[in-house]
Design a protein around this nucleic acid. Structure first.
Lengths: 347, 347
DNA sequence: CTGTTAGCGCATTCAA
DNA sequence: TTGAATGCGCTAACAG
C-alpha cells in the first residue's frame, strides 16, 4: 500500500519491475560496485521508468542508525546569531566538516522556551553543537537527555557535554595586562552579563553573578589583570552593552568617557565593540594610546584596519573542531590556541 | 536486540517496565492527553529509570512519512552566503516559519559538484528551498528528482519547482527610469554575469548571456529603461563585480568614473555595491545627484544612512513565503511586492 | 482510555 | 554476485 499523498515509489517496486531482488536494487544505489553491470542497468532503467526518487532518507537513517545530520543549536534568533561575524565563521567551520563527512547541518534556532526543547528532542540528528549560551539553558539539558553526543562551544560546561573553546580567563588576563599597563583608571566594555541584556555602567561587578560563561570568564581574567597592575577592581567601571555591535560600543564608551575621573584604559570584549569605542574616542578628540589605551577581541578585519590590539582566535577552526568531536566520536574537551596581536591602540 | 554502540532504550522496553502496552508508552510522549495520569506517571517513571532518550526521530519520521525538517540549498559556500545580509534576512524568514511549524531547518551548502548532489538526495527533509542560483545548477535537478516539493527563490525557474521572488525585470526598469532620467551616459554596476565571476567593464552586454537569472532579469529591465530614456544600450557601460560587496563596488565604480566620456547615472544592483560606489564618487569629488545620479537595490540600512534611492523588497517575507509554500503545500508561484524608495542620490 | 495488529522503506546478516 | 529473511523503532488504524 503506497502513501496516497505522494504515491511514493519504493525500492521493492523498482526491484520487482527490474526482475531482481530488493537487495540487488538496494545495492545498486548504496554500493553499486557490488552489483553486476547488467543488473545495475536493469535496476536503473526500472527506477527511471517508475520515477523512483532514490532511497528514502528516513528509512535509511532508521536502518543504519545514523541520521546523517548534525544539529546546531543557536542561543538566540537567527537574525542576531547570523549578524555576529564570529558566529558565522564558527558555522562555516561546522559546515566544512559536515560537507567533508557527507553530513547535513541542521540549524535549531532558539525562539521560545517550551517549543525549543521539543524541537531539539525531535530533531533527526546524530549529535548537537551548542553555540555559546547562558547557564542553565533548557535546550542544553534537552540535548544531553537524548543521549546523543553534545559539544558546547564556549560554555556552559555540563556533565554529558564536551567543551570547545579557548581559555577565556587566561586570554583576558593577558590582554588586560597589556591594556591596563600603566593606566590610572582601567575600564571594561563588556557583553551583556545576563539574558536581561541591560545596558548599564557598573563599578567592579562580581563576575560570579554573570550568567554567560564566556563573558564571566573574560571578566574574571580582566579582574585578575586589574589586580596584576595594582588597580582596585571596585573602582573599575564596566560598561555593559546590550548587544555586540559597534553602535552599542560607541554609546557606552561615550558614557564612560564623560565620567570624572575619566578611564584611561579600555578593554573591550570584541572588535565590534572596540570599533564603536574608537569612534567614540575620536568624537571627543581622545588619542590612542596616549590618552586612552584600547583593546578588542577576535582579530576581525576591523581590528586590523583600525590598528586595534586584540586577541586572535579562529572561530572557524573551533567550529570545525566541534563538528569533528561529534562525527569522529572524540570524548575530550578541546581548548584552542589564542594569541595577543599588538597594534597601535595599546602600548 | 539492542544497538551495541549506544545500548539504545526503546519505547517497547519502557512499556514493558511500566507494565503497559507500547502504544500507551507511545501516546505518553506523542499525545499525552490521551493517556490517564496514572499510566503516564508509570511510563515516565520507567523512562527515567531506564534512561530513555525519547522517541527516535528517524523511526518517527519513517512511520509518519514526514522528516520534520526543511532543506535550504545555498548556491555557494556558507562563508559567502552568510556574508550577504539579504541572504541572512531570507534565512531568518525561513527559520521563523520553520519554528512556528515545529520544523527544523537543514542547511545544504554547495561545495563540490558531485558530492553536493548526493547530499541533497540523502537529506532527510520534507522539501527544498533553493537560494538563488545559476541556470542549470545540478542541485536543482537533484532536488526535483526526489519528488519532494521544491521552491526556488529568485531563479532559475524549472519544471517541478515553484518560484518565489519579485518581478526583477519590472523593478529594474522602474528604477532605471528614475536613475537614467535626463542622463547623457547611463551605466550599471552589476552582480557577476556567470559563475566565472570575472570583474570587468563591458559595453552593452547581451543580457541573454547572463546565467544568473536574477541578474539577467535586472539587466533586461535596465536595458528596457535605457531604451525608455532614449539611450543606446550598446554604449551603456556595465561594470561587472566579482562579488557583492562595497569594496568591489568602489573599485569598479572608480574604473567607470575614470573613463571618457564619464557616465553620469549609475544603476547598481545592491545597496552594498551602491555604498562602495558612493565612496568612489566621494573620492573623486563627484556629487550626487548633480554630477552622477545613483541608485541601489534592497533598501538596506546603508541605503537609508547614505540617502540612496533604492528598490525595497522584503527578503525576510520572501524566505517565509518559501517555507510556507512547502509546509502548507501551496502549488503556485509567488511574486512579492517591491517599491521604489526615492532619496537624495537621484532626482 | 488501552491494547492489538500491521507495517513505514530500507539494509544487515547469512546462505546460496 | 545475488537473494530471503528479518527487524531498525515507532505509530496509524482500529477494536475493545
Amino acid at each position: 500500500m503506497r502513501k496516497s499523498f505522494s504515491s511514493r515509489v519504493t525500492l521493492a517496486q523498482v526491484a520487482d519491475r527490474a526482475g531482481v531482488s530488493t537487495m540487488t536494487a538496494s545495492y545498486t544505489f548504496s554500493r553499486p560496485e557490488r552489483v553486476s553491470a547488467a543488473s545495475r542497468e536493469k535496476v536503473l532503467a526500472a527506477a527511471r521508468a517508475l520515477g523512483y526518487g532514490g532511497p528514502d532518507p528516513s528509512a535509511r537513517s532508521l536502518r543504519r542508525g545514523s541520521a546523517g545530520a548534525l544539529g546546531v543549536i543557536l542561543g538566540e534568533h537567527l537574525t542576531y546569531a547570523f549578524d555576529d561575524p564570529q558566529a558565522r565563521a564558527f558555522l562555516a567551520g561546522v559546515a566544512d566538516v559536515c560537507a567533508e563527512q557527507g553530513h547535513a547541518m541542521t540549524i535549531l534556532p532558539v525562539v521560545d522556551a517550551g517549543a525549543d526543547v521539543a524541537r531539539v528532542r525531535a530533531a533527526a540528528v546524530d549529535g548537537y553543537i551548542l553555540w555559546t549560551t547562558e547557564d542553565g539553558a533548557p535546550v542544553l539539558d534537552a540535548a544531553i537527555a537524548t543521549h546523543r553526543p553534545v559539544v558546547v562551544h564556549g560554555g556552559p560546561a555540563a556533565a554529558g557535554a564536551r567543551l570547545v573553546g579557548i581559555d577565556n580567563r587566561a586570554a583576558a588576563r593577558a590582554i588586560g595586562q597589556v591594556v591596563f599597563a600603566g593606566a590610572t583608571l582601567p575600564a571594561v566594555v563588556s557583553f551583556p552579563l545576563t539574558s536581561a541584556r541591560r545596558a548599564q555602567v557598573v563599578a567592579g561587578p562580581d563576575p560570579h553573578g554573570v550568567t554567560f560563561p564566556v563573558t564571566r570568564e573574560r571578566l574574571l581574567g580582566l579582574q585578575d589583570a586589574a589586580r596584576d597592575v595594582g588597580a582596585r577592581w571596585s573602582e573599575v567601571l564596566v560598561a555593559v552593552c546590550s548587544t555586540n555591535d559597534a553602535r552599542e560600543g560607541h554609546t557606552m564608551t561615550a558614557d564612560l568617557m564623560s565620567r570624572t575621573p575619566r578611564p584611561d584604559a579600555l578593554a573591550t570584549m570584541s572588535d565590534e565593540l572596540a570599533s564603536g569605542a574608537v569612534a567614540a574616542l575620536d568624537a571627543v578628540g581622545l588619542r590612542m594610546p596616549r590618552d586612552v589605551a584600547l583593546t578588542g577581541w577576535d582579530d576581525a578585519e576591523v581590528a586590523h584596519r583600525l590598528g586595534i590590539t586584540t586577541v586572535a582566535q579562529s572561530m572557524r577552526e573551533q567550529g570545525a573542531a566541534c563538528a569533528r568531536q561529534i562525527l569522529t566520536g572524540t570524548t575530550s574537551d578541546f581548548s584552542d590556541r589564542w594569541q595577543i596581536i599588538r597594534r597601535g591602540s595599546s602600548n
